[in-house]
């Protein structure tokens, strides 16, 4: 019971902190090379290199996380590109990292402006990044990534999976239409 209450109180604080600081939202960014010919890319394949360290021992070589991310990426990529095993136009890489961030705004508020918002000031922030490399020229032609709070999500498999799906869909949506 105590444990359950702590979780509830924790999530209320967490939600309040996120709502107040805006860290619940995932911010998505990307940059893209201008393609030489519009709609020149029809297919992609996964890069042969495996996942890189994430900075969090719970996610390093974690096949559940890796498969979820790859499945989500394949589902989103399928809307635009064919997946091939070899001789594809594009090579897809992914990278994920997690680290602790300090929310200065919640700290500032506890210096007298607000008595109720002593909530959580340290949270786990994550970045998921996807890269597309032109297979012929071996140059990076698009990079998309999301940044946001993953606080408490690694410890909750269902929640993490939802977050990964949401993040990957947002990233892939930034691939330019003329690619």
């Amino acid at each position: 019971m105590i444990a359950i209450r702590r979780v509830v109180v924790g999530s209320v604080f967490g939600l309040a902190a996120m709502a107040a600081s805006g860290c619940a939202s995932l911010s998505v960014h990307s940059f893209a090379a201008r393609p030489a010919t519009p709609q020149q890319y029809k297919s992609y394949r996964w890069a042969a290199d495996g996942p890189t360290p994430t900075g969090d021992p719970r996610l390093d070589s974690n096949p559940f996380f890796e498969r979820r991310l790859m499945t989500a990426a394949e589902r989103e990529m399928a809307k635009r590109f064919a997946k091939l095993e070899a001789s594809a136009d594009l090579v897809l890489h992914y990278h994920a990292s997690v680290n602790q961030e300090l929310d200065i705004r919640t700290l500032d508020r506890s210096y007298g402006v607000c008595t109720q918002c002593s909530a959580q000031s340290v949270y786990e922030a994550g970045t998921i990044m996807l890269d597309l490399v032109d297979a012929k020229t071996n140059t990076l032609v698009w990079r998309g990534w999301v940044e946001g709070s993953f606080d408490g999500m690694i410890d909750n498999q269902a929640w993490l999976e939802e977050r990964v799906d949401e993040a990957v869909a947002k990233i892939v949506a930034t691939i330019p239409a003329n690619f």
């Binding site: 602790q100 300090l102 506890s110 210096y111 402006v113 008595t115 002593s118 000031s121 340290v122």
Partner: peptide, 22 residues
């Protein structure tokens, strides 16, 4: 890192003026 709330909830410093300790 963590932010301590002990000082703010404890006896020697009560209220919103207590600085949080990282």
């Amino acid at each position: 890192i963590d932010v301590s709330r002990i000082n703010r909830e404890g006896l020697d410093c009560v209220g919103p003026d207590c600085p949080p300790e990282v």
